[in-house]
Write a protein that binds this DNA or RNA. Structure first.
Lengths: 352, 352
DNA sequence: CTGTTAGCGCATTCAA
DNA sequence: TTGAATGCGCTAACAG
């Protein structure tokens, strides 16, 4: 990188001081005569001046940058959230430093630290780590944090939660209302609170309607795949469905913990010649953009990704701009988006 | 943000100088006695010291950060590329500042400037803008750039190109080899060189095999939707297919300029009860992860997204680390990934 | 081996 | 209205 032009160069050429140049070029409202103002701007343009924000940051201790940590950037659910965050950040003059934890606690901690070192003014995070010491330490040091997706219990910061338990309940109830009683559950490992809640919702619905379910119908992946496994969830859906289909007594409906996994489920069902929804109903969770693009379009639980991103960012920037650290705690409500992957149970199944 | 502990605080408490503290904590290999080294580390831990990279940056003029500009973060093609970039960047100790131009030239220019202001050491960009003045100016100022996807003609920097024309040719030829002669083309606006090349490839294949095609079979969207239109391409596919299906003489196969649009095409075909591939063959372009998840899985042209990201990043960092600005120009080759959305034309169609 | 000092680019206090 | 001077946190040249 060559030596860049600085305000000093401009000051010299415009025969004035760096102070005045700074005042003009940083749009300060400090009074400067119009004549001088013009001259400085002219010289700046002439020299192709582009300010060095590092200098400004060091002085003002205000980076106008926020950090975002998510588990997976290739999962459309998260990329939609990031889009929401970014849209708001941009409109309010902030920039986003995006980090992809790859579902790894170690990477998450590393990023957490780096973001702080880079002096981000705030942080939006879907934490994967059960160890919250570091986040808490940073909050203690004055970092503003908004947690979403995976909420961090006891953290002194704003949170955007989602009622996963109710979502799990609604999904299961939707199937029950369609006449299903043999309802399978396919899920990634229950290592995250969100997934555990979904599972609880499923169980609660079964209980409420006094339905008993075969052990084998509950297929939960045992290991969490970390780092660079790209379509991990899709593959997971395929594998778990294979296992499920080995049961002697098959379910008539499957509730899947998220849409990406549900795509794997549908894929394997198609492979084995099982028609959705005629022979098997499938309901997902998240309502990512792609769920409407599937054939058949996937019935699922709506989690407003883009809006969550916007909300999280607005919350954070309100805190940053307002100086006051009032904690807000929001719980978003789920709803069923019925499409064509679920249907009323055929009588032939009912009396089987 | 409260006042953070600095090396000065540590120096005072450890009864030494900031220079020595800096030497120890920045892992310099400058000799410091073990005893003092230990003491400093201890005090640093005690005070929960986290270095301020802004200070270091201002001094060393080395941010260890690279910028990335892509048109859409929610398009899996780009998010896979970003994943590839990020994986390499991380492994080589760099960080990524990601910007989403929303297919807007203005936003792109704004980001370009901001990234430079933030002192990124290099830039990986899929440029949407036809005005390359700003990029060129920045390159002139010493910014290292690697362009991909949309190549920037005449730019003094490395490029990772893709043979879009050949890809378009191969896709069309694939359909021709399956016996198709009535081959439609559906595309987003041909405003980008990449898409124009795909279209040329399509035309060349038709010419080579002496095939004439109805005007109406070539459906190209007229306006490029910018900013925050999330599933723009999907919708586009739906709209253009609707138009196409109004033709009196229908094609037997459709070549779509990218997978996302192809999803819209397949969706609308399903809606109108037209079976893929029995009644209509569809081939896409890109081979994003989701194309394998569709029913039927989409036949498409492979563009190695993740690997392109890795390659671009390695190229850039080689330049940065090596000091030498040797320009590399790579043209990646396309290949057909045959899945189940295309099939040999039925005789019933042949003799119709 | 250790400490003193200068300065990276900028904004801001203070004095004029 | 302008300019000189200071310092943000850190590293590096230099001196000891």
């Amino acid at each position: 990188m060559k030596k860049q032009t600085t305000i000093y160069d401009i000051a010299r050429k415009a025969k004035t001081s760096t102070a005045t140049v700074s005042r003009v070029l940083s749009n300060s409202n400090y009074p400067v005569s119009n004549e001088l103002k013009e001259r400085i701007k002219e010289v700046a343009k002439e020299l192709n001046y582009i300010p060095n924000m590092i200098g400004r940051q060091l002085k003002t201790n205000n980076s106008m940058t926020i950090g975002v940590i998510i588990p997976s950037i290739t999962n459309p659910f998260y990329s939609s959230i990031v889009l929401g965050i970014e849209d708001i950040a941009r409109s309010r003059g902030y920039h986003v430093l995006l980090c992809n934890s790859h579902r790894s606690s170690e990477l998450e901690e590393e990023y957490l630290k780096t973001l702080f070192e880079k002096q981000v003014r705030g942080l939006i995070v879907s934490s994967i780590s059960s160890n919250k010491e570091l986040v808490e330490a940073l909050v203690q040091k004055g970092l503003n944090v908004v947690a979403f997706d995976q909420t961090i219990e006891g953290l002194e910061s704003s949170q955007i939660q989602f009622d996963f338990r109710k979502g799990g309940f609604l999904a299961t109830e939707h199937l029950i209302e369609k006449g299903h009683r043999k309802i399978a559950f396919i899920s990634s490992p229950l290592t995250r609170p969100s997934r555990l809640s979904i599972y609880e919702g499923y169980q609660q619905a079964l209980e409420k309607y006094e339905i008993e379910v075969e052990r084998e119908w509950i297929q939960i992946a045992s290991r969490e795949e970390e780092i660079s496994e790209r379509n991990y969830e899709f593959k997971n859906g395929i594998d778990l469905t294979k296992k499920l289909l080995q049961c002697s007594d098959l379910p008539t409906a499957i509730f899947v913990c998220n849409d990406m996994t549900a795509f794997g489920v549908m894929n394997e069902l198609a492979n084995q010649g099982i028609k959705v929804p005629q022979q098997m109903s499938v309901i997902g969770f998240d309502n990512i953009e792609f769920s409407q693009m599937m054939t058949p379009p996937l019935t699922t639980i709506q989690q407003p990704d883009y809006e969550m991103g916007r909300m999280a960012c607005n919350l954070l920037l309100d805190q940053l701009d307002g100086e006051e650290t009032k904690q807000v705690d929001i719980i978003l409500q789920p709803k069923v988006v019925e499409r064509q992957s679920t249907k009323v149970l055929d009588k032939v199944f009912l009396f089987k």
